[in-house]
Lab assay of single mutants.
Amino acid sequence: SKIRITWGDKTWEWDGDDEEVWKRILEWARNLGDEELWRHVKEWVDK
């Protein structure tokens, strides 16, 4: 399956939905430097 994140007018996609993928997404969000996006992603990961 895919994980799709839409933020503003951008959309990103990742293949898979296991823990490793979420770790990569969390790292990606942090590297993007958008605090609010990172917080949202972290909330999803922690669920």
Rank of each mutant, 00 (worst) to 15 (best):
D18S: 13
R4P: 02
K42P: 01
D9N: 10
W28L: 03
K42H: 08
E13N: 03
V45L: 11
W38C: 06
E35R: 05
D9I: 01
R24I: 13
L37D: 01
D34Q: 04
D17S: 11
E43P: 01
L32T: 15
E19N: 09
K2N: 10
S1L: 12
N31V: 09
W14E: 01
T6S: 11
K23H: 09
W14H: 01
L26C: 06
E19S: 13
N31L: 11
D9A: 05
D18M: 09
D46S: 03
G16Q: 10
D18I: 09
R30D: 09
N31D: 12
W28M: 02
E43F: 04
W7I: 14
I5S: 00
V41F: 03
G8I: 03
D34H: 08
W28K: 01
K47W: 03
D15A: 08
L37Y: 04
D18L: 06
I25T: 01
G33N: 09
I3K: 02
E27G: 04
K23G: 09
L37P: 01
W22F: 14
A29D: 00
H40F: 15
G16N: 11
W44S: 02
I25K: 00
A29R: 00
G8K: 11
G8D: 07
T11M: 08
I5W: 05
I3H: 05
I3N: 03
L32S: 14
H40A: 13
E43Q: 04
E35T: 07
R39A: 13
D9P: 03
V21M: 06
I5L: 13
V41M: 04
E35P: 10
T6K: 08
D17F: 06
E27N: 09
E43A: 06
R39W: 09
E27M: 09
W44Y: 08
K47G: 14
E27V: 12
R30H: 12
R39V: 13
I25R: 00
D17P: 09
L32I: 12
D9E: 11
G16W: 12
R39I: 14
T6V: 13
E20I: 09
W44E: 07
N31E: 13
W7S: 02
E35V: 06
L37A: 04
S1I: 15
E43W: 06
D9S: 08
K42Q: 15
W44I: 15
E19Q: 12
N31Y: 09
V41R: 00
V21C: 03
I5V: 09
E36H: 07
W14Y: 03
R30P: 01
E13A: 04
G16M: 10
T6Y: 09
W38E: 13
D15C: 02
D46R: 02
I5N: 00
A29V: 07
E36N: 09
K10F: 09
R39N: 15
E35F: 03
E43Y: 07
R30Q: 13
H40I: 13
K47V: 14
E27K: 06
W22P: 05
D15L: 05
V41L: 10
W28A: 01
W44K: 02
D17L: 07
I5T: 01
W14S: 01
N31H: 09
G33I: 05
E36A: 07
W14V: 03
I5H: 01
W28S: 01
L37M: 10
A29G: 03
T11Q: 08
S1R: 12
E36Y: 03
E20G: 14
K10P: 00
W28F: 08
I25D: 00
G8Q: 11
D15G: 07
T6M: 08
R39G: 12
K23W: 04
E36L: 07
I5Q: 00
D46G: 02
D15F: 09
D34L: 09
S1F: 10
I3Q: 01
R24A: 15
D34C: 03
A29Y: 02
D9T: 08
R4T: 14
W14M: 03
E19P: 14
D18N: 14
K10L: 11
W22K: 09
D18H: 10
D15T: 07
I3Y: 04
E19K: 14
W38F: 15
L26K: 08
K47H: 14
D15I: 09
W7P: 00
K10N: 12
D18T: 11
R39Q: 15
T11G: 02
D9L: 02
V41H: 00
D15E: 13
R39H: 11
L26I: 08
L32M: 15
D18Q: 08
W38M: 15
G8F: 05
T6N: 08
A29H: 02
E36K: 05
L26V: 07
D9W: 02
K47T: 14
W7F: 08
E35D: 14
E43C: 12
V41I: 14
N31W: 07
E13Q: 06
S1V: 14
W28D: 01
A29S: 05
I3C: 02
V45C: 06
W12V: 05
R24C: 05
R24H: 12
N31K: 11
I3E: 00
D15Q: 10
W14F: 12
A29E: 00
V21A: 04
I5F: 15
G16D: 11
G8S: 06
D18P: 07
S1W: 07
G8Y: 08
V45Q: 12
E20C: 09
L26M: 10
W38H: 14
W44R: 02
R30N: 11
R39K: 13
E36V: 05
R4N: 10
L37R: 00
W7T: 01
G16R: 13
G33T: 05
D15R: 04
D46T: 03
E13C: 02
G8W: 07
W14T: 01
W7D: 01
E20L: 13
E35Q: 08
R24N: 14
G16A: 15
W38R: 07
K42L: 15
D18W: 07
H40V: 15
W12M: 11
W14R: 00
K10A: 11
I5E: 00
K23F: 08
K23M: 09
G33D: 11
D34E: 07
D34I: 11
H40S: 15
D17K: 10
S1E: 12
E19M: 08
L37K: 01
L26G: 05
V21P: 04
N31G: 14
W22N: 05
W28C: 03
L32W: 13
R24P: 03
H40E: 14
K42T: 15
R24G: 07
W12R: 03
D9C: 08
L26E: 13
G16Y: 15
L32Y: 15
R4Y: 13
E35H: 07
W12Y: 14
D46N: 03
G16T: 10
L32G: 05
D46C: 10
D9K: 04
V21K: 02
K42F: 14
